[in-house]
Design a protein around this nucleic acid. Structure first.
Length: 499
RNA sequence: GCCCCCAUCGUCUAGAGGACCAGGACGUGGCCCUUUCAAGGCUAAGACUGGAGUUCGAAUCUCCAUGGGGGCACCA
């Protein structure tokens, strides 16, 4: 065990409840979870609802449902409790207020009376010129008289800002990248406590990570610039900071920038790709494929394998195999992997997943028949909804026969097609046992007798019984369909060709 | 504008100084199988961003350039 895991491993996934789960968030959660499970540690879910403006009351449920759907269970957090709770930040406000004021008392933080309007004006001015961005520290060194005056002018409203060191530099150790050093004059006097009494992310994060005894912070790369800020906060409190590792971001597959729900990615051809976890679910991706896929972005198994179970991933997971470089979202690979998992899935479970999709498409689903059809259709399905196009034929009660063009194969005409159908019908009707093997035994010789190529005869029959250009093989299809339906469809086809 | 991170086939990646004329996977092309479509098997094309160093030796170390990404809120 490496030195950074000497302490009990406690990691957290700390989403903000502002909307649906994003696939990038799922990846962050997954890596935390894998790390915890590998080290026999604790995986904590913490809800960072400190922004009242962006709060979405549905988001908590979307997060917990999403995590459960992909199989990421948490040991402490909402719904499960734990001894370091509460795990929802809005229920911990006194904590943050206490520690913000503690810093003020220590002279490490100060009350700032600058209005949002003044700050806006300041930022606008900075953006148009060459000046340094950020707060100008106007309230950092006020005299008691100035402070009293501003306090009155503002009706007692203020925020608490941290006194960032101005000189020197701050070095943060990242487990994936080594030391990262920032000049302190680049750091801001960030707000710790807002006017409404809520903490900012920075304060809440540091206080909670400390009191929840978080050992490792595994978060996305976009947080690197806040690491020195947090380091200084830990120093200010006199607390030992956790270990940091910043995970690479997932980039848009074709567009620019990171994959986000705000800049949705588009595949070649303008097709939209899923970004939110519920979109993946609706799109017919299965959880184990999504998990396997996500582990292959930014991490690799160690040998040349691409397909492996969650259990194997847990056994193998190691931060040293995380690739610090960000990468694009390889959606084609997920489609392939999804197909792999569908082909490998327990038929009963696959049937459970497929049934509602077929029903939503208007089919009445007989589960026995679905179970028998699954071996025929599963290897033709990449995403679950593909079942409609490839397997709907088994459940069509009022079957619509194919058009003449589909029935009449290459090199054939209507009369010959009609003859072929009639002869086939007669041969099939005479079968005492209607199964794939017996059908094949009479149809194959029939092709020769009629002077047709195998592809022509079978093509016509396949069109007749499936009405699909693409379908499972003929004999197995008729076998599952049964004598009655198969023969009825051939008769329907004869009528079409006779017209 | 300033700061930070990253850099191997189209894409996801293996590679932690000699084992690399760089391996795997997806995708793409070809062939085989074949009643369509898949699945499967075989196969082909395809990359170390550039330049200086260090070294007997560099995809691997250092620096610079370039490119890509992230950040600079009373959002997280």
């Amino acid at each position: 065990m490496s030195s950074h895991t000497d302490l009990p491993v406690r990691v957290r996934f700390a989403p903000s409840p502002t909307g649906p789960m994003h696939i990038g968030g799922v990846r962050t959660a997954l890596f935390n979870w894998l790390f915890a499970r590998h080290h026999g540690g604790t995986f904590i879910l913490r809800i960072e609802d400190t922004d009242q403006k962006r709060f979405d009351p549905d988001a908590l449920r979307l997060i917990t449902d999403g995590l459960r759907w992909v199989g990421l269970d948490w040991d402490e957090g909402p719904e499960v409790g734990g001894e370091y709770g509460p795990y929802i930040q809005s229920e911990r406000l006194q904590q943050y207020q206490h520690w913000a004021n503690w810093l003020v008392d220590q002279g490490q933080a100060y009350r700032c009376y600058c209005s949002p309007e003044r700050l806006d004006a300041l930022h606008k001015q900075q953006e148009s010129g060459q000046e340094r961005r950020g707060y100008d520290r106007r309230c950092r060194d006020l005299t008691p008289e100035q402070r009293d005056q501003l306090h009155h002018e503002n009706g007692g409203k203020y925020v608490i800002r941290f006194k960032m060191p101005i000189e020197g530099s701050t070095t943060v150790h990242d487990l994936l990248r080594g030391d990262i050093t920032f000049d302190n004059d680049q750091l801001q006097d960030l707000v710790l406590l807002k006017t409404d009494g809520y903490p900012t992310y920075h304060l809440a994060n540091v206080v909670d990570d400390h009191f929840m005894k978080i050992s490792h912070i595994l978060r996305a790369e976009e947080w690197i610039p806040t690491a020195p800020i947090h380091k200084n906060l830990y120093d200010g409190f006199g607390w030992e900071p956790p270990h940091f590792a910043h995970l690479p971001v997932i980039l848009n597959p074709s567009g620019k920038g990171k994959l986000s729900k705000r800049t949705v990615g588009f595949r070649e051809g303008g097709q939209q790709i899923p970004v939110r976890l519920d979109e993946f679910e609706a799109g017919g991706y299965v959880p184990e494929a999504i998990i396997n896929f996500l582990t292959n972005i930014g991490w690799s198994f160690g040998d040349n394998r691409e397909v492996f179970s969650v259990q194997e991933t847990i056994e193998n997971f190691d931060l040293s195999r995380v690739n610090p470089a960000g990468g694009k979202f390889p959606i084609e690979k997920l489609e392939w992997l999804n197909g792999v998992y569908i082909r490998d899935m327990d038929p009963v479970r696959l049937a459970q997943l497929l049934k509602p999709i077929l029903e939503n498409a208007g089919y009445e689903v007989n589960v026995d028949m679905l179970l028998r059809a699954i071996p025929l259709i599963r290897e033709r399905i990449k995403v679950l909804p593909d079942v409609i196009g490839i397997g709907g034929l088994f459940f069509a009660d009022d079957f619509t026969p194919p058009a003449r063009d589909m029935l009449i194969q290459k090199g054939m005409d209507a009369p010959r097609t009609k003859t072929a159908l009639e002869e086939s019908l007669a041969a099939l009707e005479a079968l005492p046992d209607f199964n794939a093997a017996s059908q094949e035994a009479v149809i194959r010789p029939l092709a020769e007798k009629l002077g047709l190529k195998m592809g022509q005869l079978l093509g016509t029959l396949r069109a007749a019984t499936t009405a699909q250009e693409v379908s499972p093989p003929l004999f197995e299809t008729m076998d599952v369909l049964g004598r009655e339906k198969s023969l009825a469809r051939i008769r329907q086809a004869m009528a079409v060709v006779s017209e």
